[in-house]
Simulated assay, not measured.
Amino acid sequence: MSSTLHPHSEGSRAAAGGLTLFAAVMMLIAGFVDIFRGIMAIVHDNVFVSTPDYVFKFSLAGWGWIHLFLGIAALMVGVGLFRVSLWARILGVAVASLLLIANFLSIPYYPLWSIVAIALCALVIWGLCVVQHEDVQGS
């Protein structure tokens, strides 16, 4: 008997569900943190760095609103990911990609957290893309 899992075995489906659950939890965390980051920027908290010559210059409040809306979207999609549906996985990749881009563009304003958030979003994208649709739904 081979020790390799059949692509549609119970172990394969459990691993697929586990990765989707991991991505859902990470998406919720990223959403909450981005909401807090957005609120901090909107009220002009002192944790942000002043970057007068930055190419993608928005007001700090403008970045705050972007992060606030993306955080809310991440929360909604994160909750949808608990249903392990294809539409939630597709939206999850899209929202995580937008969060990744927004955090990349805001590196000069809050460098350390932006890099951590980029890594977090990359893990979410990986967790949602590595799972085959058939593995999640069963055979």
Score class of each variant (00 low, 15 high):
F22T: 05
A16G: 03
G38W: 09
M1C: 05
G11T: 03
M1T: 00
D34V: 01
P7T: 00
A23E: 06
S2N: 11
L28Q: 10
R13T: 01
S12W: 05
D34G: 11
A23W: 02
G18H: 06
E10Q: 05
G17E: 08
F36P: 01
M1P: 03
G38K: 05
F32M: 10
S9N: 09
T20P: 00
G18Q: 06
G31Q: 06
M1V: 01
G18C: 08
A30S: 15
M1K: 06
L21G: 12
P7I: 02
V25Q: 11
A23R: 00
L5T: 01
G17S: 01
R37S: 15
A14H: 11
R13S: 13
A14D: 13
D34A: 12
H8D: 14
I29D: 08
A23Y: 03
M26F: 15
L5E: 14
V25H: 06
F22C: 10
A30H: 09
F36W: 12
G38Q: 08
L5Q: 11
A24W: 02
L28H: 11
L19R: 04
V33C: 07
A16K: 00
T20W: 05
D34Q: 15
A15Q: 08
F36M: 12
A15F: 09
G31H: 08
E10K: 00
L28Y: 14
S12E: 13
A15I: 03
S2P: 10
D34M: 14
G17A: 03
F36K: 01
G18I: 09
D34H: 11
L21T: 14
V25E: 13
S9F: 09
H6F: 11
L28W: 14
F22Q: 07
A14G: 03
R13W: 12
S3Y: 12
M1L: 05
F36C: 08
L19Q: 09
M26C: 15
R13K: 02
H6N: 07
G18R: 04
E10A: 02
A30P: 10
G31P: 14
G11V: 02
H8W: 04
V33M: 12
P7C: 06
M1A: 07
S3R: 09
L21R: 09
A23T: 01
G18L: 07
F36A: 11
A14F: 09
I35L: 11
R13N: 11
A14T: 04
F22I: 02
T20L: 04
S2W: 07
L5D: 14
G38H: 06
H6W: 07
A15R: 02
A30M: 15
V25C: 12
A24D: 10
A15K: 03
I29F: 13
